[in-house]
């Protein structure tokens, strides 16, 4: 673990509506990540708050998805990956030796770019994780499944066909099902890697509204290439460039008056 930590970056000029009150929930300290000899993340230190939406932006290859995947140790699955530094979620070091990675991924759920429902019924898709985590009684399952589908704003559309195949749903519905599946096991954090990039504008708007609803209950970190999406849904934004965290501030500040020229150039479409 790296001993020397860079100064903490905290959002500056945060509006009253999103003023930080609580201690940081996700503490990323001096994180570097290597794919073999190649350093994909360079000494990243940033603190993310609880129950806010933080957007990670930056050009392809900047490390934003890599950092996102560090937050539930998805990178452990890749050969040759080495991570330095520390990441704490809710005060617990998620890279500590005694951490149960399955338990961690229950606390830190993930939604991917391409919706990936299981080739099962809508009901079974949401029930799967719940059963895995010990919910067995049908009445409990029914309640939690309805609750999750309600929270994912999908219930009204699927309540009469819960036992139909999830693969029959539209792309936007499938993505909301994946969100329902992720929230069913009541995670603390939801990671989203470009969750709406394959969706049409209407389905995208529904996902964005859903994210804004969900932040009441969950801490959300989202990777997006869509600047306007970041502007619409996030409270804080972090801009990455070639493995470095260039700037982290309130989203309003990043999109109206970024402090760094590289951020200004990127959000203005001058590169990337």
């Amino acid at each position: 673990m790296a001993e020397t930590l860079t100064p903490k970056l905290v959002p500056k000029e945060i509006s009253a509506a999103s003023a930080p009150t609580a201690a940081p929930f996700i503490e990323i300290e001096g994180v570097s990540l290597y794919y073999g000899a190649s350093r994909a993340l360079k000494n990243i230190s940033v603190h993310l708050e609880e129950k806010v939406v933080t957007a990670f932006i930056g050009p392809s290859g900047c490390g934003k998805s890599t950092l996102l995947r560090c937050l539930n140790r998805m990178n452990d699955l890749i050969d040759g990956v080495r991570i330095e530094g520390s990441i704490k979620i809710g005060g617990h070091d998620i890279y500590a030796k005694d951490v149960d990675v399955i338990e961690l991924r229950k606390r830190v759920g993930m939604v991917f770019q391409k919706s990936n429902p299981f080739p099962k019924s809508i009901y079974e898709n949401v029930a799967y994780g719940l059963r895995l985590h010990g919910v067995k009684a049908k009445s409990d399952l029914d309640t939690r499944i309805e609750e999750s589908l309600q929270q994912a704003a999908l219930w009204e559309e699927v309540k009469d066909r819960l036992h139909s195949s999830a693969l029959g749903l539209s792309g936007g519905q499938q993505q909301r099902l994946c969100i329902a599946r992720a929230i069913a096991i009541k995670p603390e954090v939801i990671l989203m890697d470009e969750p709406a990039s394959a969706l049409d504008p209407i389905a995208t708007a529904r996902i964005e509204d859903l994210i804004l609803d969900l932040k009441k209950y969950f801490t959300i970190v989202i990777v997006t290439h869509n600047m306007q999406q970041a502007a619409r849904i996030s409270d804080h934004t972090a801009f990455f460039y070639i493995g470095e965290l260039v700037e982290f501030a309130s989203t309003t500040k990043i999109f109206t008056n970024p402090a760094q020229k590289r951020t200004e150039d990127y959000v203005s479409g001058r590169f990337g």
């Binding site: 600047m227 999109f255 970024p258 200004e264 203005s268």
Partner: peptide, 9 residues
């Protein structure tokens, strides 16, 4: 076209 930063201002 959704300008941002200096362009938005």
């Amino acid at each position: 076209k959704a300008p941002l930063a200096t362009n938005l201002r």
